[in-house]
Design a protein around this nucleic acid. Structure first.
Lengths: 262, 262
DNA sequence: CGTGTTTTTGAATCATATCAACGCAGGTGG
DNA sequence: CCACCTGCGTTGATATGATTCAAAAACACG
């Protein structure tokens, strides 16, 4: 169900220059720049391309946690771009049990294969309060058509997303609970790091233990115990949603995490 | 303990014309037609497009079981198209444990995002003796450029492949052993059916129980017991590699299998 | 036939799920 | 300001599904 957010929440139109006086959360300094930075990492962007991306700020909305952005079997008529917060793709069983298929973090997008008009095979939902651009199909296609650099970067980003999906399948398929968790933490460390949201091995992971359970194919109780074990071993520290990776080397070793597939 | 199987490396160079005198299996009557049929299902093909596809027969090779087609971290300089047999994508852990990420069955292809020049994040190996076309990068790109219908069909086929990958992740993440197996069987029934390899609810599944285990994230012993359970319940019959689905309705129910994502 | 692979079996063990309950913190409304 | 509620993390006890190890039986192949 699409919640219509009151304009008062988010009314900025046009490019929004970095404003040093706006000190809300450190990571929200300039949400669009994270996207530009990430895409530029995949393929170098020209100035007009950067400008075009900045123009997307026009479509940004704030959505509350648990807002469903695209319902399973629904047809997406717009592309989604995440600027802050975590969103997820997931499937649900009749029993109510869920499996999260992917996280959408700032800089990630969802265009369902350039909006082919097929119904989606999963649901997309905000795991936290998010700032998300809903870009109309026509505008999005225009953007891709006009700016080949953006199109290329998005294509490569999609390859990375595919690689991550493979990684997740292998993770659930052949790792134990602690190993799975370690692997996920390594991945988040890397992904959040690449968008500048890791400082001194620490980052915010605004996920419930239930979310983690539904990601890793474990029960939430077991997730709790696995996290305790990782803390006991001195691999991580966890206070609320704040994670600190104490022993990145050992964590990677435990997970057999291979960097660089992103 | 996982036995290390001696690996044959593909060494054939240069096109090897299809040899009409080789009469091996009945279902191999015209391997290319299966591909055409499948692609045509995704997007209607013109006559010249069909002709162009037939021309691919030129690149078909027979590869033995366990032949590695593309090594992990290798860069693919050609597209693969499967005409008969089963191949697999998989990842391996240091312990030797494997996780199969996908099956490549007749009509499936692998172009690694139109040959971006990135190293592959997984290995591609023949699970059985296969007939596979190795199409050089240049030829493949030419084919896509010349024939938009083929390009579109391949793009849609890729969306289907992505949907299948999601399905597998959800399968391993939230289903029990028997449910996973049932789901896989339903998927194979549907996929093999769509290429005419199912007759009266029966098909050939040339997979070892170890292969199945590495697909479903179970031990091979457990796979064996799960299969016995499904037989005991009268859901399937299994003799050698020959599967007969006795109660498709109940099997789908057990698996909560939703048709139509292919 | 004999050899290697695959399937099947049994028994012991372990990892993880399930159920149920409690505590704690933040938010809400009286 | 307090009582209440709700969501989340934590715990213990118990159940069970799945793994492991080891070995025998059944096949497939040359």
């Amino acid at each position: 169900m699409e919640t219509i957010v009151p304009v008062t929440v988010m009314n900025s139109t046009g490019p929004e220059p970095a404003d040093p006086s706006r000190r809300t959360a450190p990571e929200e300094a300039d949400p669009v720049s994270a996207l530009i930075c990430r895409l530029d990492g995949f393929a170098p962007l020209t100035e007009p391309e950067r400008a075009a991306l900045l123009g997307l700020a026009r479509y940004v909305r704030t959505v509350e946690r648990h807002t469903i952005l695209v319902e399973q079997d629904g047809v997406a008529d717009h592309a989604l771009i995440v600027f802050s917060g975590f969103a997820s793709r997931y499937k649900r069983r009749a029993s109510g049990r869920r499996q999260i298929l992917a996280y959408l973090i700032p800089g990630d997008f969802c265009d369902r294969g350039a909006l082919h008009g097929y119904p989606l095979d999963h649901t997309i939902e905000a795991l936290t309060r998010c700032r998300i651009a809903k870009v109309p199909r026509a505008v999005y296609l225009e953007l891709l058509g006009q700016h080949p650099g953006i199109a290329l970067a998005l294509q490569r980003a999609k390859l990375a997303e595919e690689a991550t999906a493979h990684e997740w399948l292998a993770n659930i398929g052949m790792r134990s609970g602690p190993e799975r968790m370690a692997h996920l933490l390594c991945e988040l460390l890397e992904r959040l790091g690449s968008i500048g949201q890791v400082v001194a091995g620490q980052f915010e992971m605004p996920l419930t233990q239930t979310d983690l359970a539904e990601t890793l194919g474990l029960s939430s109780v077991h997730v709790n115990r696995v996290l305790q074990a990782l803390r006991r071993e001195g691999l991580i520290a966890l206070r609320g949603r704040h994670v600190r990776i104490l022993a990145p080397r050992q964590l990677r070793e435990l997970a057999e995490f291979e960097a660089g597939y992103l």
